[in-house]
Amino acid sequence: MIRTIVGLAIVLVLAAILITVVDDYTVPSALSGVGELYTQTGVEDTGSVNLVTAVVVAYRGLDTLGEVVVLFSASTAVVLILTLIPIGANPTPPSSIVAFTAGILPGAIILFGIYIITHGHLSPGGGFPGGAVVASAFLLVMLGSNTIPDKSKFLSSIESLAGLTFGLLGFWGMFTLGQFLNNLVIPAGSPGRIISAGIIPLISLAIGAKVASELSGIFSSYRKAGGEE
């Protein structure tokens, strides 16, 4: 009871503060600062039609590298905890209908994920959503398989390879053009084509592989520690 009252009081005080903050906010009529700069010169600078991918991979590529490291440490912590402290494995066998569908669908889902990753500079998508889609295909495979898969070596080598690719592509830009993760070490080409935007598609592939392998690693260690219903 006292917990409810204290919680409600804290939330109401925060709501009052937020409303006073919002009260002063006026609807901007134009973009300001760095957002305006990105929209004005983004396509010329990077060759990527999709400005969100341009910001994620090119302008803020170093931030993305850091965020991939955060993702890496979170997934490593999950895998480490579940490997060191076993919770008890009891995967329930899937029914034959689920097993059959899990045999035919993941190919199409992985294809769709790769499409999202490789068209990240042309249409909505990129490494992060595409990697999540590919990881959900792996999840389907795991749900449909009767045995506990032991692919952790394969997954961790893909993960390391993707991280290494990201770093090496960054250093390539640093040594040739004097700027870490400069994406114009390959000529930008004409915006709107599939082979354009410098190394943005390559970095998208690396990010996608990394996200997919890390989420799959989490699911794989979950499966080892017991089935997901």
């Binding site: 803020r60 931030d63 979170a74 997934s75 992060f128 999540a132 996200v211 989490i218």
Partner: peptide
Amino acid sequence: VDPLPQALVLTSIVIGVAVAAL
């Protein structure tokens, strides 16, 4: 619209699910 917050949120969602898993 401004692409910068969208780019930040894109990474934030993926990190959010990893943190939720932890």
